[in-house]
Every structure is written in structure tokens, then in C-alpha cells.
Design a protein around this nucleic acid. Structure first.
Length: 364
DNA sequence: CGTGTTTGACCGGCGC
DNA sequence: GCGCCGGTCAAACACG
């Protein structure tokens, strides 16, 4: 009898295991569908939203900041509007998944989207208030000094007081790091760069290249490019610093605005971690201060929507506080046309403040 | 010849 | 004060 019972139990266990396998397979299928749907929805929404965004922009005091991330080589279009993405993604998925209960959604990694929808910061009025505050603060910073030498000189002159007021004590220029999977370190970000140095840092045996913007004779913008791994296909870390003092071509404007928006987020004390997830919902965004440089890092090698790595707002941290600085209004799109992103192409756009300390902006 | 890259020297900040 | 190290300069070189 016991043997028979044991066999029956074994058979049951086997069945359960098979069911478990099937469920796993189903889950992975659903995840794949979800991702492709997300992309598809974004493609559909974008043209509609661009039109509406333009209207909204024109009706609000002539200033706006349109930040988006466009990753990868193709021109895949993705929606600019988070709310629309969130809502439609959820709706579509609810239709796709027959049992679209909340339980299942969270199991599929949709939790962050729901949070985005419920994020009070997404209220359009609040966004505008937030934006106008930052834009006010930017004007003074437009006087900002281009190069280090300029800064030094200016500090001995009339700008000294302004600088001391506007900059955090002990903090240097804000930097924006973009870590991206890329074969070619010479990322086509729309700007012309002139290499002026190469150095092997002690911490990393791989050489770090130094570039400065060559579109203007005295443009202070610099960038550093360093490979993260040994192999040629490994990610590159590109660090931008400075403010362009000349008009930018469209692609470069896109780039500058995107990174400046990231920098402004870093410097805006009102930016909560939730807001950051709101701005960059599909990629990992982190903030830190290294060598007194407030640094915002956009990790394009780590898609944030990965269900295995759900974005946790609490994981994002701030290391610098806000200041009252102004910035110009711009409409841009961040474009990495030379990148080969491993993650599905994402274009993401949102109204974002540019703070005065933003060093990469489409200033003219 | 003009423009961009390479590379060793130099500078300045920072920690000890 | 000294040494380390990241960042920049600038002469030499390469290339179209």
C-alpha cells in the first residue's frame, strides 16, 4: 500500500513539475509579448503626442524642455509621454493577458508603470511650476563661464560672488555619464569633437580619451570616453562636462538637452527618486558625487524595465542638493545615433527642467 | 596646407 | 612639504 501511495505521490510531483515548467514557459512568452507591445505602443503614440506637445509648449510662456532618449541606430519612434505609455501599455497588456489581475501585473514587472501613473509629480500643473522655477533660475547661470581658466579669471572679477552663490560649496561642474553598449567609442552625438589627450588612469588600465567640442573655437564642452571592459564590444562610458557656447546642430541639440536634463535632475533638490524613474523609466539612472563632481549616470546597458531587475525607486540616490539657478528653455531630443543598444530602442521624452548649473544644454 | 591625433611634459588638486 | 594622479598643453606627426 505504501509503495503504491509513494508511486502516486511521485506521479503527482511529476505532474506538478511539468505544470511548473509550462507556467515558466508561459511567463517568458508573456514577458516577450509585453516588451514588444511596449515598443509597438510607443511607436503608435509618438506622432500623435508630438503634435499635442507642440501645442502645449507654445501655450506656456514660450519655454519648454523636451527631453528624450533615443537609443540605438534605428529611427524607431517611441512616445514622449509617460502617462500615455503607461496607460496604454497597461491597457494593452490587460487585453493581451486574459487574466490581467493586479497580481499578475506586478508579477510581470509592471509595478513601476503603475507607480508612474500614480506619481503626484506627474501632474501637469506641478510639472509646469517646477519647470518655470528652474527656468527663472537659469538666466543668471547663462553668464556661466566656459572654461576652467575663465572660471578662475572670473572668480577674481565680478563673477566671483555669483559663482559662490550659485555653486555648491566644494562641488564642481555637474557631469553626465552615459554608459552605453557600443562598438565604436566615437559615438555620433551630433557634435564635432577634437581629441586633445589620452591618459591611462590608475584605477583602470584601459586608456581614457579626452575630447573637446571643436564646433566653436572656445567652446568649453569636454567629454571623456573610456571603455568599461577589455573586449571591443564592451560598453563605453562617456562623460560630458560643460556648456556649449554656440548653436548646435539638431542631433547635438538633442544630445545636449538630454544630458542637461539629467544633470538638472541631479541638481534639482525637488527631484525625488520617483521623479527620476519617471524621467528615465526604461534605463538605469544613478546619481553620485565623485571628486566633488555631481554626476548623473545614464546606464544604457541596463534597461530598467527588465522584469528580473525591477526599478526600485529607493535604489536611486541623490548626492547633491538643489540650488536656485536658471537655465534657458530648449526643445531637444537626446540622440545616440551611433550606438548599438542591446536594449530595445527607446525614445522617451518628457518635460524636464533645466537648472542653471546644467552644463550641457542647447544654449546659444 | 589645414585639420585632427598622438604622446610626453607639465600643472594643480588632494591626501598623507 | 611631498608625491601621486587626473587633466591639460603643445610639439610632432599623420592624413586627406
Amino acid at each position: 500500500m505504501k509503495e503504491v501511495e509513494l508511486d502516486a505521490t511521485k506521479a503527482k510531483l511529476e505532474k506538478v513539475r511539468e505544470e511548473n515548467e509550462k507556467l515558466k514557459l508561459l511567463l517568458s512568452t508573456v514577458l516577450t509579448d509585453y516588451k514588444s507591445l511596449q515598443m509597438h505602443v510607443s511607436n503608435v503614440i509618438r506622432p500623435q503626442h508630438e503634435a499635442s506637445m507642440e501645442l502645449d509648449i507654445n501655450s506656456h510662456d514660450d519655454f519648454c524642455v523636451d527631453v528624450s532618449l533615443r537609443l540605438g541606430r534605428s529611427d524607431l519612434n517611441v512616445s514622449k509621454n509617460v502617462d500615455e505609455i503607461d496607460k496604454i501599455s497597461l491597457d494593452k497588456i490587460s487585453d493581451e493577458i486574459s487574466e490581467g489581475s493586479d497580481k499578475k501585473r506586478s508579477a510581470l514587472g509592471l509595478g513601476f508603470q503603475i507607480q508612474s501613473c500614480e506619481d503626484p509629480d506627474t501632474d501637469p500643473t506641478m510639472k509646469l511650476d517646477y519647470l518655470s522655477k528652474d527656468v527663472k533660475n537659469t538666466k543668471a547661470d547663462n553668464k556661466c563661464l566656459s572654461s576652467r581658466k575663465d572660471i578662475k579669471t572670473a572668480r577674481n572679477e565680478d563673477h566671483q560672488e555669483a559663482l559662490e552663490v550659485h555653486e555648491h560649496p566644494g562641488l564642481k561642474k555637474t557631469r553626465v555619464c552615459v554608459k552605453a553598449p557600443c562598438e565604436d567609442p566615437s559615438i555620433n552625438d551630433g557634435c564635432q569633437w577634437r581629441k586633445y589627450g589620452q591618459k591611462t588612469a590608475k584605477a583602470n588600465p584601459l586608456p581614457r580619451a579626452y575630447y573637446r567640442c571643436s564646433m566653436s573655437s572656445n567652446c568649453p564642452v569636454r567629454k571623456q570616453v573610456q571603455r568599461c571592459g577589455e573586449d571591443d564590444t564592451s560598453a563605453y562610458m562617456t562623460t560630458y562636462e560643460g556648456t556649449h557656447d554656440h548653436p548646435l546642430p539638431m542631433e547635438a541639440t538633442h544630445m545636449a538637452a538630454g544630458t542637461s536634463a539629467a544633470a538638472s535632475l541631479l541638481q534639482s533638490g525637488s527631484s525625488s527618486s520617483a521623479r527620476l524613474s519617471y524621467y528615465f523609466p526604461f534605463h538605469h539612472v544613478s546619481f553620485s558625487t565623485t571628486n566633488a563632481h555631481p554626476t548623473v549616470t545614464l546606464d544604457l546597458t541596463r534597461p530598467n524595465y527588465d522584469p528580473n531587475q525591477l526599478p526600485t525607486h529607493s535604489a536611486l540616490s541623490f548626492s547633491s542638493s538643489s540650488s536656485d539657478r536658471p537655465s534657458p528653455s530648449n526643445s531637444h531630443t537626446l540622440s545616440f545615433s551611433g550606438l548599438r543598444s542591446q536594449a530595445p530602442l527607446t525614445k522617451y521624452s518628457q518635460m524636464a527642467p533645466l537648472s542653471h548649473q546644467t552644463k550641457l544644454s542647447g544654449q546659444q
